[in-house]
Amino acid sequence: MLNVSPLSAFNDNYIWLISNGRQAAVVDPGDAAPVRTALAERGLELTAILITHHHRDHTGGIAPLLADWPQAQVFAPAAEPLPVPGARSLADGEPLVLPGIGLELAVLAVPGHTLGHLAYHGQDMLFCGDTMFSGGCGRLFEGTPVQMHQSLARLAALPGHTRVYCAHEYTQANLAFCHAVEPDNPELKKYMQKVAKLRQQGIPSLPTSIDQEKAVNVFLRAHLAGVRARAQLQAMMELNEDHEVFAALRRWKDDF
């Protein structure tokens, strides 16, 4: 059995630690310190480092970790600058088995937040970096609204029970925006209460699930008439395509 646990970094990042009790992999280690601490406390050997995209808060800890665990293999997007020499570059559709822990993952290209952003799916788990958040999605630093809309649709098509391991604790702020868009969504209201209780206790709101996000995340709900109507009202223009609704929602959220 694999265990997946969050390691807090910076103000709101999560580095995901995947272990089998002996070996471990980490996803998006922006900071080496919490990884070193967790590995030492749990007696784990680092065998793999998995990267979703090139931003520093997801890659900054790689070199220090390799100094301590030089045998660890680094896996990163082929369409972005490799974070360290010798990293194995990955492209859409490639099979991947994380060394040591044996986790089989499918590599999914999900451009939008960055052009080469990847997500990794396997064994009912999705590591999606900054593409999807609970109740939200990443800002469009490099990609287009069409790209991000398509990437989110690709993730939303995964099995509903898939656990979604996002890279940031943005949930409460995201849900506040979702509530502004869909104030009468009963599933959203229930989820907001659940998340509020978790955060009051200092417990991460993540992982979420694909089904949960389809029920509350307005960026996955641009096809719904009510969401379209609210987006049109905010944008003060007619929106004819779902990706146009998505784009209007993203602009709204940027200034929310």
Rank of each mutant, 00 (worst) to 15 (best):
C178V: 00
V164Q: 06
F75H: 07
A119L: 08
K194Y: 09
M236R: 13
A225D: 15
T131E: 03
Y191C: 01
P77G: 06
D254A: 15
I51Q: 04
G143F: 12
I203C: 00
Q212C: 12
G138K: 10
S19T: 14
G202E: 13
A32M: 06
I62S: 08
T59N: 04
D211R: 03
A229D: 08
T131F: 05
V35K: 01
A48V: 06
P81I: 02
K194P: 00
L233Q: 15
P83Y: 11
E213H: 00
E241Y: 14
A72G: 04
S19V: 00
A78E: 06
C137K: 06
W69A: 14
F75E: 01
E182T: 13
D124E: 14
L105F: 07
A63E: 14
L249I: 09
L158N: 10
D130C: 12
A79M: 07
W16R: 07
L206P: 00
G135P: 00
D68E: 15
P29G: 01
P204G: 03
D254C: 06
L2Q: 04
V216S: 01
A87P: 02
P70Q: 11
R154P: 00
F177W: 12
A153S: 13
Q200M: 08
I49M: 09
M192I: 11
C178R: 01
R228N: 08
E104D: 13
A176F: 02
F10A: 15
Q232L: 07
R163D: 15
N11A: 14
V97H: 04
A67L: 11
W252M: 11
L152Y: 02
A40D: 02
A229P: 00
F133N: 03
D92E: 15
M192E: 12
F246G: 01
L155N: 05
R154M: 09
S151I: 07
A248P: 02
L140S: 06
T162I: 10
A33V: 14
H121L: 06
L98E: 05
V4T: 11
